[in-house]
């Protein structure tokens, strides 16, 4: 099993005091999964824009039906949740018991932000269906529902993962393997945020 000792020192002649320790966050396998997922979404981004080439007027008309404010609020919610995970990774190492005890609190806050994203996404979908808009309505809405739905699926997986991290963060100590998993889980959550940072402008803002 790969653990956090996995590190490669840069080939440098700089003095030890200025030398940075390079290390892989989480496990190597986690990164194969994360970059694989990111590449799949990169293909989706291109497929969406390629489909737009054949009907730019139709895509612009359908995009005008979207509520950009929902998308923007959701972006901020995911950014806040990512910040909570960043803070978790900072306090999980703390020698101060009070700071260390904040880790599960931060993870719970990140989870609530993620759940808030899903609630708003639910409102957004309900609004569309209420106006008779479904994936069959047009190519644009087919891509809208498939891409945002796939992202929401990743978010649900991320929420489940955060529950595991929450339980782990309550333990007084983590083994090296557990810590690598913990770090990998945090990176997966950041990936969910990262994908939305492209999906939101691509679907909602680019005209």
């Amino acid at each position: 099993m790969t653990d956090i000792d996995l590190e490669a020192r840069p080939a440098t002649t700089s003095p030890p005091s200025t030398r940075r320790t390079r290390r892989i966050p989480g496990e190597e396998g986690t990164w194969i999964f994360i970059f694989g997922d990111m590449c799949v979404f990169a293909v989706f981004f291109c497929v969406f824009l390629h489909a737009r080439i054949s009907d730019p007027v139709g895509f612009a008309r359908d995009q005008a039906e979207l509520n950009q404010n929902f998308g923007a609020i959701n972006t901020v919610l995911l950014l806040v949740s990512s910040l909570f995970i960043v803070l978790t990774m900072r306090v999980i190492h703390s020698s101060n018991a009070v700071m260390r005890a904040k880790a599960p609190v931060f993870i719970a806050a990140a989870w609530l932000c993620g759940a808030g994203f899903l609630v708003i996404k639910g409102f957004e979908y309900a609004e569309k269906v209420h106006h008779g808009i479904t994936p069959q309505t047009s190519d644009f809405f087919m891509y809208y529902f498939v891409l945002t739905g796939l992202h929401a699926f990743h978010l649900v997986l991320g929420l489940a993962l955060l529950v595991v991290l929450f339980v782990m963060s309550r333990k007084p100590e983590l083994s090296k393997g557990q810590f690598a998993f913990f770090e990998g889980g945090a990176c997966f959550w950041h990936m969910v945020d990262l994908l939305w940072l492209v999906l939101f402008p691509l679907i909602f803002l680019v005209r």
């Binding site: 099993m1 956090i4 940075r20 190492h93 703390s94 020698s95 101060n96 100590e173």
Partner: peptide
Amino acid sequence: METSTTPAPSTSETFDAAHPDVRTPAELL
């Protein structure tokens, strides 16, 4: 299977390079 534990992460040299010991809310942010 990994069995070793990290008693206090902040005391581990491996952790320190990337994750400094955060002891106050000001240091946290």
